[in-house]
Structures are given as C-alpha cells and as structure tokens.
Amino acid sequence: MKPLVSVTHLTRIFDVSKPWLNRVIERLPKSLLTAVSDVSFDIPQNSVYALVGESGSGKSTIGKMVVGLLPPTEGSVTIEGVDLAREQDPEKIEKVRSDIQMIFQDPYASLNPRWRVKDIIEEPAVAQGKKPEALAERLLEQVGLAAEDAGKFPHEFSGGQRQRICIARALASEPRLIVCDEPTSALDVSVQAQVLNLMSDLREDLGLTYLFITHDLTVVQHMADTVGVLYLGRLVEEAPREALFADPKHPYTRMLFDAAPKMDGFGREIEPPEGEIPDPINPPPGCAFHPRCPLATDLCKRERPEPRLVGASKVACHHAE
C-alpha cells in the first residue's frame, strides 16, 4: 500500500548569521545551522508515526515542513503523491492542503484571543469556501465540549479545553493527516490523559493519520505505531514501537530510555548520561553522537554512519547490532 506521507532526504538549513553589515565589518563568515539533515521516512495510512528527540533535534522543523509552513532546503515531502513545495496545479494544492492539519503545543497561543470559538473552529472550512450548517457545534460535541460553548471566547476555557478546541478546528476541514507538535506537554497529567484518549478515539472513528512530535517517551510508548528517534537533525533510529522499547539499538536511544524517569524507580541510583547536546552550528564530525557515546571508536569520529537494518530497526550507527 502506498504511504500517505513520504518524506525523502529532507534537509533544512537556516541562515543564522549576523546582519550583512556586521558580517562585513567584523569579518565573520556566514553561519549556517543545519536543523534537519537527510531525513527520510514514510507514514502509512491510519497509523501514528512519532518523532522523538530533545531540543535541537529538528523535530518541530520537520513538522513544519510536512505541513508546508516551511519550505525544505533539499529533499521533499510528498502527501498523497503531491509535493506541496513543487506542485503547480492549484487544485491539487488546495485538495492536499485541506487534508493536512496541525495541533500546536501551547493551547494558550494557538487560539486567537479576539475570536469567538465558533469562528475559530469554522475558519478552515470558511477558508475553503464551504461551511456546513452548525459545524462548530457538531465538532465541539465530538471533542467532548458543549455546543453552547461556541459563543464563548478562548479565555473562558482551561488549558485542556482549549486543546480540545484546537482539535475541533483541526477536524473542521476533514483532514486525513494531523501533525501534532507536543500536543500535551503544556497540559497537566490528568488532562493529558483526556486529550490522548480523545485523539485515539478520533483516529479510530475518522481513520486519521498522526505525525506525533514529542520529547515525552511515555506518550510515544502509549500512542505510536512507529517511532523515529532524532539526534541533531538526523534520524538515528526508526523502529516499530514494540521493537524499539523492547530492544533499543542505537546507543542514543538507550541513553534516552535510561535517563527517562520511571514510575517505579524509587530511589533509583542511575549513572546519568554524560555530556549535553552539542552546538548544532558546529556539530561534531562523523557521527554527531560520538562524544557522548560509550561505543565510539575512531571510525565514528571520521565517518557518518548510514542507516541500516538491524533486526526490525533501521539504525544509523556503526556499532549497533
């Protein structure tokens, strides 16, 4: 079966140099930040693909490129066979665009404070030039709020309720793919459970596909079908959820799992991981993880590992087995 989303050799470079005049005066070179480098993955229809990584891993940048908010520097994102960045046919663009929606991290910033909930939710449909009767009311009930809430303003709702409104807005254009950028990390635990359950239900009811972007391994373990682990803009490991959590192959994945707090880890004395994430403007040569890696050899300092299959996982490591 053809995947719904196909990301190939996706690369994004940001120019983070000082302004031109300062560069000339201070004789500084241009500085480029490679936020995403040569990332490829597929998302099959009706599945949940999770991108996990710490800050600077490029996970949010990938999300923005998938929905078309940022153009890729190299590589492409193909959704239903259409590459939004290169497609010329406006009809196809329109069609694919209404098939993608996004849910953001901060439920307080993602709703226009001056708009009524009804207008917020119906905006995607209005933008497409169609507006079914009582759309907002129906969607509000679908996400577990009351139809009467349509006339209220966002500030009258709690964080979890706002995230439900965001989900309702995302559903308004009847999308097939929803990119979720840290959708629950601003929420309290008990509310997070409600939102995750809602998302699971919607996936089943509407046949949705999710690209889940998060740093929270517990959420990944609960939601994902396939997991991609990012480190400094590169996909270091990709595996089905069960395989990844049962037997992580990449030393970075292992480090991440060991470091994550455990609910039964009372007084656990762990050997905390060494070092911190390097500066993405000057990443280490070879494998970017080698300065923190217990398996690192000279090979790792020289040569960047290409992804290869180890068991059920695709791993970019010279020494994984």
Binding site: G159, A193, Q194, Q221
Partner: peptide, 19 residues
Amino acid sequence: STPLASLGQKRLRQIPGSM
C-alpha cells in the same frame, strides 16, 4: 493517568473534568 501506568492498555485512565 500517566501513560506509564496504563502501558499496553488502549485507553489511559482519566479523571473527568479539570481542576
């Protein structure tokens, strides 16, 4: 309601409503 506590279950246990 922490995902770890309901591992392997389809739905998380949730507290209805909010504080």
